[in-house]
Nucleic acid binder design. Structure first.
Length: 789
DNA sequence: ATAGGGTTAG
């Protein structure tokens, strides 16, 4: 009909008419016909008409047609090319966008303008060479668009896309004018890069400067508040939404659903979800994840099934929200079903799904399936690496964690604060001070976020690796401490035998506003038992029950038994056990047995060991302990039978080994080890030491060496314990007067303990030993543990 | 004649 009009009314066949016709065009067929009319009317060289046509063609996804139009146009201007670049950008075809840009610069005299840069920068995705973006940023500045808000927003967004957070902020700071979109770009970029605290700060700054914000701003900042579990700030944002009348916007409501979900208020989340007129997939995902993280798996699965029925597609986010990462133990079958579903539907190759599943399996201590998921995932993201590394450290597989971290270093993914937190935990477990210090340097050099997790991990690492005073220095300088931070410090003091400091710190903690937990008291009681602070331990136990209303766990009882037992008050320990309101478990009897062995009380030892035997199969330590009792009574046949029992249950004893770092290189020794290249020199050194030690009064203990849990093999006459080898190696490979630090996986035996005291005396060295339980600082023939260990 | 930013998952 319109076409007939054209034919009958020549006066209307001008550029304006066709432009109107193009914009009203309902489909591609109509548009093609209009193109024909344009040519018939001789307007095929009118740049405005053709630009409009190219734009409409790309709206109908006919990019090839639009491209042909541009490239065959006799005198194209920059507008026409801009439209084409925008088309490529929308069509997610960055390579064509770039080649168009290259063509403009190489084959025309046209100058790219602010539109060109804005379009092309937004077309670049993270699959491309980073230098392209840098080059374009450069060109835009040279061409004088360095202060243009549109180009600026695109540049900032691009830096965030490539996780160059620092550079993005630098560009943002350099912008003379900032509009709402630029602010929003920065806030969303920070949130996308997990810099939630920074995102909140920028939002505050935006409010402070009186900048205009809109629903997009609030929808962008809400997830940051949700991630930080900042309910107060979140409610403030909700008020602002009300104030500017966008509290019913779907995006804002979705953000609020997420906020309330993550802060544990599932009811409000559900109510707000109900306010969304037409919930889309994203808001449903938010609600599903809300149900899951509040352990309402039934509702989560219900909504998931509903979604499956109503649409044929759910996305990876739906599935991730359904995976019970926070409570995997209660929902094993669900976990397996989700795994099966993701395998069947192929979403398992989505890095987020894979990462969530990796996390769940790690938490279930199923490390092999976790590793398989990680290996099978085609794209290794930061979260994926982090999940696998922390999976290893949380399961005590520290060497594997470190190996994986080294592999990560070789990839193009850079570690963040989460990665280093796991690595610090691995170092703490291993006692790897050099590696730990290196990680600390990385944190400083890379300016990684220093949150309470990182600082606590640092304190724990330094404490567990022997630098207790530096740990305290860090502790004092930390602006925010939570209960875990305090616990780490108190436990550090316990490890080093600084019981008094631990008690003082516990009191300081009560004075501050941080409430102690059961763990705090385990740490504090442990510190008391290892320093022989009987009265203090008793007071703390009573305070825990009466002042804090905490119910003692078996660990607390075991600590108390240890406190009495080590101090030689065996009858009091027994009385304490008899007065327990709950049935004493293997931990309590094991501790009692240990105390009986130290103080050589065979009668009570027999009672404790009989009790302990009722818990057979609980762990290898008790079998070893039992067998040691029999050996010390020279009941070798019985001893052998107990060991046989342990072996039958495939509970082989952990072999003893000791690690020493010299110049950053770790050296590991096992009992009677002769594999070290400097083995001869080491044994020679030991021989000469022994002579000097004997002169100073040292005698080898043989009988008493037969009694501790998990010591190294009792073959002193044949094999030299790994600890002595490491010390001897330390002596010959370090300057006189320097401190020697060694780490042993098992508890140190009496003979080595005494020997180390003498070595520290005759060599005038400080020797720091971290054994399986605690630290020993040897100096001038004395040990900091006061012989309690 | 052509603009840029938003909500879910690890």
């Amino acid at each position: 009909m319109i076409c007939r009009n054209v034919a009958t009314n020549p006066a209307l066949r001008n550029s304006d008419f066709f432009r109107h016709l193009i914009s009203k065009s309902p489909n591609l067929a109509h548009l093609t016909q209009t193109h024909a009319q344009i040519i018939l009317n001789g307007l095929q060289t009118d740049v405005i008409t053709i630009t409009k046509l190219a734009q409409k063609l790309s709206d109908f996804n006919s990019i090839r047609h639009a491209s042909l139009l541009c490239h065959t146009f006799p005198k194209p201007d920059i507008f026409l090319f801009n439209v084409l670049i925008r088309a490529y950008s929308h069509n997610k075809n960055p390579l064509s966008a770039i080649s168009t840009y290259a063509k403009i610069r190489k084959t025309t005299i046209l100058k790219p303008d602010n539109f060109t840069y804005a379009f092309i920068l937004s077309a670049l995705d993270d699959g491309l060479d980073e230098r392209l973006g840098l080059l374009l940023h450069c060109h835009s500045v040279v061409d004088g668009y360095g202060s243009d808000v549109f180009v600026g927003s695109a540049v900032v967004d691009w830096y965030f896309k490539f996780s160059r957070v620092g550079l993005a902020l630098k560009v943002f700071d350099g912008m003379p004018d900032r509009d709402t979109v630029l602010w929003n770009t920065v806030i969303s970029g920070l949130a996308r890069n997990c810099a939630f605290t920074e995102a909140m700060k920028i939002f505050m700054k935006m409010l402070g400067e009186g900048a205009v914000f809109d629903s997009a701003t609030l929808a962008t900042v809400l997830p940051a508040a949700a991630e930080l579990q900042e309910m107060t700030l979140g409610k403030g944002i909700q008020c602002l939404a009300l104030k500017i009348g966008v509290d019913c916007h779907a995006h804002v409501l979705t953000g609020l659903v997420s906020l309330y979900s993550k802060c544990g208020d599932c009811d409000t989340a559900e109510y707000l979800f109900g306010q969304i007129l037409r919930p889309d997939l994203i808001s449903c995902n938010a609600m599903i994840s809300g149900y899951t993280c509040n352990h309402d798996t039934e509702s989560a699965v219900g909504m998931f099934k509903e979604l499956l029925h109503s649409r044929e597609r759910v996305n990876s986010s739906t599935l991730v929200g359904l995976i019970p990462v926070h409570s995997p133990f209660g929902f094993l079958n669900l976990t397996y079903s989700i795994h099966a579903f993701s395998l069947k539907s192929g979403v398992v190759s989505n890095p987020s799904v894979s990462t969530a599943m990796t996390t769940v399996y790690s938490r279930l201590n199923e490390i092999e399936p976790a590793r398989k998921l990680f290996d099978d995932c085609p794209e290794k993201t930061l979260a994926g690496w982090n999940a696998m590394i922390s999976g290893y450290t949380q399961n005590g597989l520290t060497e594997k964690a470190i190996t994986l971290f080294q592999q990560m270093q070789g990839s193009d993914v850079r570690p963040n604060h989460v990665t280093v937190t796991s690595m610090l935990s691995a170092c703490a477990q291993l006692g790897a001070l050099t590696l730990g210090k290196w990680v600390h340097d990385v944190i400083i050099k890379e300016k990684l976020e220093m949150n309470v997790y990182v600082s606590t991990a640092l304190i724990d690492m330094y404490a567990k690796c022997g630098s207790i005073s530096y740990a305290r220095q860090l502790f004092d300088s930390m602006p925010d401490k939570n209960v875990v931070t305090w616990n780490a410090m108190i436990s550090g003091y316990g490890l080093h035998g600084h019981g008094q400091e631990a008690v003082t710190l516990l009191n300081e903690m009560s004075a501050s506003r941080v409430l102690p937990t059961e763990v705090t008291f385990v740490c504090a009681l442990y510190a008391c038992s290892h320093t022989g602070l009987v009265k203090e331990g008793n007071d703390i136990f009573r305070s825990m029950v009466h002042d804090y209303g905490l119910k003692p766990l078996s660990e607390h009882y075991a600590c108390m038994v240890d406190i009495f037992g080590r101090a030689g008050q065996l009858n009091k320990a027994m009385e304490f056990i008899e007065g327990m309101p709950v049935e004493p478990g293997p931990a309590v009897w094991g501790t009692m047995l240990g105390a009986c062995m130290i103080h050589k009380d065979k009668k009570l030892a027999r009672i404790a060991s009989d009790k302990l035997f009722e818990f057979e199969g609980e762990g290898v330590g008790y079998y070893v302990l039992l067998s040691n009792i029999y050996s010390s009574e020279r009941s070798y046949a019985e001893a052998a039978s107990v060991r046989q029992l342990a072996k039958k249950k495939q509970l082989a004893k952990t072999p003893g080994c000791t690690l020493i770092e010299i110049g950053g290189t770790p050296h590991v020794f096992t009992s009677g080890d002769r594999s070290h290249p400097q083995s001869d020199a080491i044994y020679e050194k030991l021989e000469s030491l022994l002579g000097k030690m004997r002169e100073a009064g040292f005698q080898t203990e043989t009988v008493t060496a037969l009694h501790d849990i998990e010591e190294e093999e009792k073959e002193i006459s044949v094999k030299v314990h790994s600890e002595k080898l490491a010390i001897a190696f330390g002596l010959i490979s370090s300057e006189p007067g320097t401190e020697i630090r060694i780490i042993k996986n098992l508890r140190v035996c009496v003979d080595c303990h005494t020997a180390t005291k003498f070595i520290s005396k005759v060599t005038e060295r400080i020797i720091v030993v971290r054994d399986g339980n605690r630290f020993h600082h040897f100096r001038e023939g004395m040990c900091s543990c006061g012989d309690y260990w």
